[in-house]
Nucleic acid binder design. Structure first.
Length: 896
RNA sequence: GGGCGAUUAACUCAGCGGGAGAGUGCCUCCCUUACAAGGAGGAAGUCACUGGUUCAAAUCCAGUAUCGCCCACCA
């Protein structure tokens, strides 16, 4: 009922310019009210699901989100229109470190730390923070028009999600895939937590290679010291041996000797180890097993002590003797200075080396020895590698599969424990009485082994990515065996940025296959381009190099931003964000608006909705082009070629529908009668189909217009969102090669005449005459039939045509569509200019002809090229030959 | 150290074996009853370089240069 009113809205309500701000809000509300985002499951139809990469609750929309969510919405809306039960699962990620940082900052503003408020209160504050800020990004997705199922919004700390996380942990723990160990991990002294290897960002920094002289306790063969090279001199406080290569003749005699560690006086051995590269530095390595993964290995092999000289905040511990309490960089300075004072600093070389930084706060990470929980990844990786290899999961573009394989085949164990408070607490309980360690789905207070009642839970929480990896099935209700899980798993497409390929994508495949019957979590993975700024730099809020999607939507509309992004999403090329593309898209929206306004304005009072009818070549042409468009769009979306699709839509709508078909339709509309009725139907039909094809990329404007279209009953729907997607197979009936050729020819001739008009500055209102010298009776008939259109489009009021026509005096002349065209211009022709122009054309035509003739006289070409190519070139050569002859005679005439 | 991507018109980018394209910008004309966020016309490119494959190369292969990205236990 409400819809009826909407349809009846008169076009006078359509302002001359499209105003996205006035349209988008109400349209989105109507979608929400209509519950179109929650499409019911239909028996027999193949479900289609996408899980959104859950944005952090701390997040706000940036250009990466804008692009990624446009892609997902395009795919989702297209699927929904094809009638498949379609769900876009939405939600947010609790984002352990990021959220904890936010709340800690908040506390810091009151001069408080998390320790001041305590764990319980702190977690409570995190929940409060989440409820106050966590839905900002969800609202921004709505602003973009994203058609997620907001009625079922997920959060990675929901009770059922917590259950999924615990189920996974306990299962892997019981299977021995999760273990605890004392290892060198990546420690962020600022966040005060361990990080996994892939949460560390390496950056080459200019630094130094310090050469330190370590004295021997007793000289060996006259040698009283060994020189080691290091990039982190402060770690020498934790040195427990010096290593050399066993075959290094310079040092072989020293193996087994004792070094007195400077500054601390500790006696440490010289050991031989294959790891040492004799060519690097001095060939002698100071070994600090507690502060370097390689040194850890060497230390293990030689039974050296592991002395931890650094505290959690990267200050020196008591093990560092006089340096206790100093920050690591202050300690570095002091150690170097003190060694220099002792004459033990041999030299300081400039040295560039790669330094790891925390991916959350960019603090330099410290390799640090500590007790952590790990996942044994190799057994999980094997089936996930296989799934991509055999095509159960396909990456787009495909080359990302190699990146995936490389990482998966060299996968290392995953450190999953974090020394944070906000997150999924590790469900492990220790019994101090009997030493038992238990992983449990439910909290326990009694030791299952000895019955002691003072069990305590592990203090750490899990890596946020540990819970994120469960997203595709935890959001479908797993570990319960829900109907949703059966219907929508595996999901259809995952679209994401490449920087979380390992952190998230790979891990979802591994855990999904492990827990859901060996089934992959999604069939297609789209790795979309990264959006950079105009200078090609990463967009960054802190550096002020970013562009805010909300501002863009303000200026260009949500549709303008979406379409502009889609235009730039081509191949695998990263996007240097070009705002002028958004301006064209906003203009495009305006074009759609005005073309629609024109169509609606020209619908007669007694208009009867109905099927399109081919009355003229223009009708046949536009329907044929539409059929081609539908096929191209459908195919392009299937293969995720978003840029191609956007361009096809743009070109069809603007260049073909607006510039030519609407212009060709005008005389018929003005004339009225049966022909007007037919052309109205065709205009409505083509517009309707075009709006459907445009809808996934430009949902708002298309919906707003579509509601006003007078469609046949069968084509109607409550919303364009759920209207039928144009079926290329059905539209193929409109394909008409002949009509396409005929109109191409017409366009060529009209453009030629317009060119004459522009060259001689003939005012638009001044009519022109045209004389066509044709080659056959067929041409004459064709001209006779199509002249009406031509006259309107080129402003030609009269014509004569025939095989015997000759060039009138004072006429401009050109060749187009296989005809010689003369436009008499009494007194207007500038002979010199015209001569120069014809000469130029002649030169080009002769050049082309010569090139073609050379090709056609090449026996290799004739023998080996495909016959249809040869045929095409022959026809082209014949045409060029005629053109050259014509131009030559024109030139001769001008000469005389 | 290993790998990947890019190099096409002034700018941003398509095209990826057989006629060099688009948008923006620029030049000329036009406020024509859908749209000046518009219409019509136009100028503008040894497709980075070198070699190879092919009847045919912007397109495939190899190498070079420049820029960018990723991976790697680079004391």
């Amino acid at each position: 009922m409400a819809r009826r009113e909407v349809v009846r809205r008169h076009m006078s309500e359509m302002p001359k310019a499209y105003d996205p701000g006035a349209v988008e809000g109400p349209i989105f509300t109507s979608w929400m009210t209509g519950k179109y985002f929650e499409q019911p499951v239909v028996e027999g139809a193949e479900p289609f699901a996408v899980v959104i990469p859950p944005p952090n609750v701390t997040g706000s929309l940036h250009m990466g989100h804008a692009l990624n969510n446009t892609i997902q919405d395009v795919v989702i809306r297209r699927s929904r229109m094809t009638g498949r039960p379609t769900r876009w699962i939405v939600g947010t990620d609790h984002a352990g470190i990021a959220t904890q940082n936010k709340v800690e900052q908040m506390l810091a503003s009151q001069d408080l730390s998390r320790y001041d408020v305590g764990r319980e209160k702190f977690i409570e504050l995190c929940w409060t923070w989440r409820s106050e800020h966590g839905s900002i990004i969800i609202e921004q997705l709505k602003r973009m028009g994203c058609s997620c199922d907001y009625s079922d919004e997920w959060f990675t700390m929901d009770p059922s999600y917590q259950k999924a996380v615990r189920t996974v942990f306990v299962d892997w723990f019981d299977k021995g895939l999760i273990y605890r160990g004392k290892r060198i991990i990546n420690w962020c002294p600022r966040c005060s937590t361990a990080l996994s290897d892939i949460e560390v960002e390496h950056e080459d920094l200019d630094s130094h290679l310090w050469h330190l002289r370590y004295p021997l306790k007793e000289p060996v063969g006259g040698v009283d010291h060994v020189v080691v090279a290091t990039t982190r001199p402060e770690t020498m406080l934790g040195d427990t041996c010096v290593a050399v290569h066993p075959d290094d003749e310079r040092y072989v005699a020293l193996v087994g000797a004792t070094v007195v560690l400077p500054l601390l006086g500790r006696e440490i051995p010289i050991v031989a180890d294959d790891f040492v590269d004799p060519a690097f530095g001095t060939g002698a390595v100071k070994v600090t097993p507690a502060h370097d993964p390689n040194d850890f290995e060497i230390g293990e092999r030689h039974g050296c002590a592991k002395i931890n000289v650094m505290a959690a905040d990267a200050t020196i511990t008591e093990e560092g003797g006089p340096y206790v309490g100093l920050d690591r960089y202050e300690a570095r300075k002091r150690v170097v200075a003190d060694l220099e004072a002792l004459g033990l600093l041999v030299k300081t070389d400039d040295h560039v080396h790669s330094v790891g930084h925390c991916y959350r706060c960019h603090t330099v990470i410290e390799p640090w020895l500590s007790d952590q929980w790990f996942v044994d990844m190799k057994p999980l990786a094997a089936p996930a590698i296989e799934a991509v290899r055999d095509g159960r999961v396909t990456f787009h573009p495909k080359r990302w599969e190699n990146v995936y394989f490389h990482w998966m085949e060299n996968i290392r164990d995953w450190c999953i424990s974090r020394q944070l408070w906000w997150g999924h607490r590790i469900p492990v309980f220790y019994c101090d009485a009997c030493g038992e360690t238990t992983a449990s789905l439910d909290d326990i207070t009694v030791c299952p082994k000895c019955g002691a009642t003072d069990v305590r839970q592990d203090e750490d929480v899990l890596d946020t990515w540990f819970s994120s990896q469960l997203w595709p099935f935890a959001t479908l209700g797993w570990p319960e065996n829900t109907p949703e899980l059966g219907l929508f798993y595996p999901t259809s497409v995952l679209s994401t940025a490449r920087d979380i390929l390992f952190l998230w994508v790979a891990r979802m495949i591994m855990s999904g296959m492990y827990f859901v019957d060996g089934e992959v979590p999604y069939k297609d993975v789209i790795i979309h381009p990264t959006v950079f700024n105009a200078e090609g730099k990463r967009m960054s809020k802190s550096l002020g190099t970013g562009v805010d999607p909300l501002d863009l939507m303000e200026h260009y509309g949500a549709d303008g931003m979406r379409f502009g992004l889609m235009l730039q999403t081509t191949g695998s090329q990263d996007i240097r964000f070009a705002e002028d593309k958004l301006a064209s898209s906003r203009n495009f929206a305006n074009k759609i608006w005005n073309a629609s306004r024109f169509v609606l304005m020209n619908i007669a009072e007694d208009y009867e909705p109905g099927e399109p009818v081919v009355e003229t070549v223009a009708d046949a042409w536009v329907l044929s082009r539409l059929a081609g468009l539908a096929a191209a769009v459908d195919e392009g979306l299937t293969t995720y070629q978003f840029g191609d699709v956007a361009r096809s839509l743009y070109d069809f709508f603007w260049s073909e529908f607006c510039d030519w078909y609407i212009e060709m339709a005008k005389p018929r509309l003005t004339a009225g009668g049966a022909s007007a009725q037919i052309v109205q139907r065709n205009l409505v039909f083509v517009l309707d189909q075009a709006l459907r094809l445009l809808h996934p990329m430009m949902p708002f404007i298309t919906e707003e217009i579509w509601q006003r279209l007078p469609l046949p009953q069968a084509d109607r729907a409550q919303s364009l969102m759920i209207a039928a997607w144009p079926d290329p197979a059905k539209l193929a009936r409109f394909s008409d090669e002949g009509a396409e050729q005929s109109v191409s020819r017409l366009i060529e001739i009209v453009s030629g005449i317009r060119g004459v008009r522009a060259r001689y500055n003939v005012p638009p209102k001044q009519g022109l005459q045209a004389v066509f010298k044709t080659a056959s009776e067929t041409d004459n008939a064709w001209l006779e039939a199509e002249f009406g259109l031509m006259s309107r489009l080129a402003g030609v009021s009269g014509f004569s045509a025939g095989t015997d026509q000759t060039k009138p005096a004072h006429a401009a002349a050109f060749v187009a569509g296989g005809l010689e065209v003369f436009v008499p211009l009494e007194g207007l022709v500038d002979f010199d200019a015209e001569k120069a122009r014809v000469a130029r054309q002649l030169e080009v035509a002769r050049g082309d002809l010569a090139k073609l003739e050379r090709k056609l006289s090449n026996e290799g070409f004739l023998a080996k090229a495909a016959p249809e190519i040869v045929e095409k070139d022959r026809a082209k050569a014949a045409e060029l030959f005629d053109t050259v002859a014509t131009l030559e005679s024109q030139f001769a005439e001008l000469d005389g």
